[in-house]
Simulated assay, not measured.
Amino acid sequence: MASKRASSGLTFKATMAQVSVPASSANVGPGFDCFGIALELRDRYAAQVLDDPTFDVDVTGEGADEVKKDAKNLVIKAMMHGFEHMGGKPKGIALRALNVIPHGRGLGSSASAIVGGLTLARSLVLTGEQYMSDEDLITLATELEGHPDNVAAAFYGGATIAWLENSIDASGATKSIGKAVSLKVDDRIKALLLVPDNQLATAKARKLLPETISHQDAVLNSSRAALLVHALAQRPDLLFNATEDLLHQSYRASAMPKTIALMQKLRGAGLAAVVSGAGPSVMVLYANSEDEIDQIPSLAPGFTAMKLAIAKTGAQ
């Protein structure tokens, strides 16, 4: 295998690296900022180290006219963050991206880009896993994304539980480290995504959340989040109860009234409907007959329906 040695001692592979990364839906109802589930809708990236100090970026598909095509591209930023962690940066990078995950819809497009970039960086370094473990990758991805739920699902696949731990670095400063574990999802469970045309910024959605909630609401959410683990693993018949939430979704109604109205209409029909991430998409988890699910799009004018399998694998 041809390779290029950096002054840092890292050896960059001369060949191209490729990765596909699934979409992800965070929260899944009660699991605010900790639950994520990977969906079989994948952005694909390919990258190669260049000898010239340039960033050659080409993007096709979703958001191609909106994303940066230079060093500020999110995949490139993630790659450089990964290279810096491993101890050396290449002079330049050629990147090709084929995006299919809708942007700004609560489906983890930024998490896909970040996980894709870090995975590419590791793949382009000889024995890269010695310099960046899976745990390191989740930590680095969390630093870029700000929270670990989407990036964990995008990297590991299946369902994930993610959290932040305080850690003291070499300088004595305390920093939050992203951690995650993966859960296998019952093979019977599938997802229906209802995706509106409009976008919603996660930061805007977060500003609508209250500083405090009642003890009663906190107890309900804790019980539902605990039940969600069991429901996803082996009891899809419990998904409706397990996805009940009083922590965040209703408080965001003013930012996405059509989304919340649709979610409430579907839950009124006994379906396990939740806001996907920060919205404005709605996700329905189901293991019941396809005939019943096929009737849902007629109840959701203005939303595009997408049937998706749960992604059993993450970045690959």
Results as ranks from 00 to 15, higher is better:
residue 162 A to N: 10
residue 162 A to Q: 01
residue 163 W to F: 11
residue 163 W to G: 05
residue 163 W to C: 09
residue 163 W to Y: 11
residue 164 L to V: 07
residue 164 L to Q: 11
residue 165 E to P: 01
residue 166 N to E: 15
residue 166 N to H: 08
residue 166 N to T: 04
residue 168 I to G: 02
residue 169 D to S: 07
residue 169 D to F: 12
residue 170 A to R: 05
residue 172 G to K: 11
residue 174 T to E: 15
residue 176 S to R: 13
residue 179 K to R: 09
residue 179 K to E: 14
residue 179 K to N: 14
residue 179 K to L: 11
residue 181 V to Y: 10
residue 186 D to H: 15
residue 189 I to E: 13
residue 189 I to R: 03
residue 189 I to A: 12
residue 190 K to M: 14
residue 191 A to V: 04
residue 192 L to M: 00
residue 193 L to P: 05
residue 196 P to I: 03
residue 197 D to M: 05
residue 200 L to A: 01
residue 202 T to Q: 00
residue 202 T to A: 09
residue 204 K to I: 08
residue 205 A to M: 04
residue 207 K to V: 00
residue 207 K to I: 07
residue 209 L to G: 10
residue 210 P to L: 15
residue 210 P to D: 01
residue 210 P to V: 12
residue 211 E to N: 11
residue 211 E to G: 15
residue 212 T to C: 06
residue 213 I to T: 15
residue 213 I to C: 03
residue 214 S to K: 02
residue 216 Q to H: 14
residue 216 Q to W: 04
residue 220 L to V: 05
residue 220 L to D: 14
residue 225 A to K: 13
residue 227 L to E: 03
residue 228 L to A: 03
residue 230 H to W: 08
residue 231 A to M: 10
residue 231 A to Y: 11
residue 232 L to P: 02
residue 233 A to C: 07
residue 233 A to R: 11
residue 234 Q to P: 09
residue 235 R to L: 03
residue 235 R to D: 09
residue 235 R to Y: 01
residue 236 P to E: 10
residue 236 P to C: 05
residue 237 D to Q: 14
residue 238 L to I: 08
residue 238 L to T: 13
residue 239 L to H: 00
residue 239 L to A: 02
residue 240 F to E: 09
residue 240 F to P: 03
residue 242 A to N: 10
residue 242 A to F: 10
residue 243 T to Y: 05
residue 244 E to D: 03
residue 246 L to G: 02
residue 246 L to V: 08
residue 247 L to P: 00
